[in-house]
Amino acid sequence: MVEYFNLESLVHLEQTFYETGYEGGFAHGRIHGLIEGRALGRAKGFEMWEELGFYEGFALMWQSIYEKQARNDDRATNHTRRLLELISQFPRINPSTSDAAAEVDIPKLFRQIRSRYKILCSTLGVRPSLRYSDRSQDRDEVADTGVAESDDRPKNTGVWRVESTAPKPVNGQSFDF
Rank of each mutant, 00 (worst) to 15 (best):
N171M: 01
T97H: 15
E85Q: 12
E141G: 03
S164D: 07
V147L: 07
A39T: 06
G158A: 02
T20E: 12
D73K: 02
F175T: 09
R71H: 12
E51I: 10
Q69N: 02
L13V: 06
G29N: 12
S150E: 12
L13Q: 09
Q69M: 06
F175I: 11
E56N: 10
L40H: 06
R153V: 02
I65A: 09
D99R: 14
L120I: 06
S115P: 01
G45A: 01
K118I: 13
H28M: 14
D74T: 02
D105T: 01
L40G: 00
L83K: 04
T145N: 07
T20H: 09
S88T: 10
V2N: 11
L130E: 04
N72T: 03
V11G: 06
A100L: 13
G158F: 02
N94P: 05
K108A: 05
T20G: 08
M1T: 06
L130M: 12
L109V: 00
T145A: 08
E8V: 13
P91T: 07
E149Q: 07
H79S: 11
N94Y: 15
Q15A: 13
I119D: 15
V104Q: 05
V147N: 03
R116M: 14
A43Y: 11
R81D: 10
D138A: 13
D176S: 08
K168I: 05
C121D: 02
P128M: 03
Q63S: 09
N156E: 03
A148W: 11
F17E: 05
E51L: 15
G57I: 03
Q137M: 13
R139N: 09
Q173W: 02
E50A: 13
D74L: 11
G41Q: 01
R30T: 07
V162W: 10
P107V: 05
K168L: 08
E85N: 13
F58M: 04
T97W: 13
F54V: 05
G53R: 09
Q173A: 02
P128L: 00
G21S: 12
G25Y: 08
P107R: 05
W62G: 00
N94Q: 13
A166G: 04
R127H: 10
F110P: 01
T145R: 10
A100P: 01
D140I: 09
D152N: 06
K168F: 07
A39N: 11
R135H: 11
P154E: 03
G25C: 03
G158V: 05
G172L: 12
A143E: 14
N156R: 03
K118D: 15
S98M: 08
L13I: 11
F90T: 05
A59L: 05
R111E: 13
E85Y: 09
S9E: 07
I93K: 15
W62N: 03
Y55K: 08
I31A: 11
T80F: 06
S98C: 10
K155G: 06
E163K: 03
S133P: 00
N6H: 12
I113F: 08
I35F: 03
Q173K: 01
Q69V: 00
E19A: 12
D105R: 05
D138P: 00
E50H: 15
G37L: 04
R71M: 14
I119S: 15
